[in-house]
């Protein structure tokens, strides 16, 4: 007898196979199911909605191309997180060295074009502008080096367990914990200069 989890996995596998074979409906279902997960992570990693959109597109294009290499050892969602983090790291390295190749947002440009909170479901775009506090915290996050930002975002914002983050980033669990500790201390140091504004 199969349990509901197994049935869900089988349904997901079938959906992935159909998407791989070019089924547009399956592709759309996958995109609609996971787009916010990918976009949100991309946004937290890049700090910029335009870059996050580009990155989301790149991730799903890569998923389309490499869906055959997904072997089901982790959940599709975890695999998608890994693809997104790897693409984001690549993207940010590229941007750091060759900003002209990517979006027109310079490193010093305003990085927060928009934020859409989803805690209560989709919200009208006009009412979802980020607060000043959120803007400052996101800015501080962007000031962290990528090796601290990635584990911090995955654990603290995406809610992934330490061992999942470690698997995803191919790091020992102890290193992940240590980077999260350092990342949080550094974040507090950065925010200290703006404490009246964000608290």
């Amino acid at each position: 007898m199969s349990n509901p989890d197994e049935e869900g996995l089988r349904a997901e596998e079938q959906l992935l196979s159909r998407a791989q074979a070019g089924d547009q409906d399956a592709l759309e279902t996958i995109f609609n199911t996971y787009r916010n997960q990918v976009f949100s992570l991309a946004y937290r990693m890049t700090g910029n909605a335009t870059d996050a959109e580009d990155l989301t597109q790149e991730v799903f294009l890569q998923v389309m191309r490499k869906i055959g290499s997904f072997q089901g050892r982790s959940s599709f969602s975890t695999w998608l997180y890994r693809v997104t983090v790897n693409r984001a790291r690549d993207y940010m390295r590229t941007k750091k060295r060759n900003p002209e190749l990517l979006s027109q947002d310079g490193d010093g440009a305003e990085p927060h074009e928009m934020l859409y909170a989803t805690s209560n479901g989709p919200q009208p775009e006009s009412s979802a502008i980020a607060s000043e506090a959120q803007r400052l915290v996101q800015q501080a996050l962007m000031d962290l080096p990528m090796n601290l930002r990635a584990p911090l975002v995955l654990h603290e914002l995406e809610g992934l367990e330490y061992h999942v983050v470690a698997h995803m980033l191919r790091l020992p669990v102890g290193t992940v914990k240590s980077r999260i500790f350092r990342g949080r201390v550094k974040l507090a140091e950065i925010l200290e200069t703006h404490k009246e504004q964000w608290r």
Partner: peptide
């Protein structure tokens, strides 16, 4: 301090027009 700060950030959703553009490219 950092706990308080991070609690201010919530998951963001992809804007509708960006979703439509991306889906169209994927298709």
């Amino acid at each position: 301090v950092s706990r308080k700060a991070l609690d201010k950030l919530e998951r963001v959703s992809m804007p509708g027009d960006a979703s439509r553009r991306t889906l169209s490219t994927l298709k």
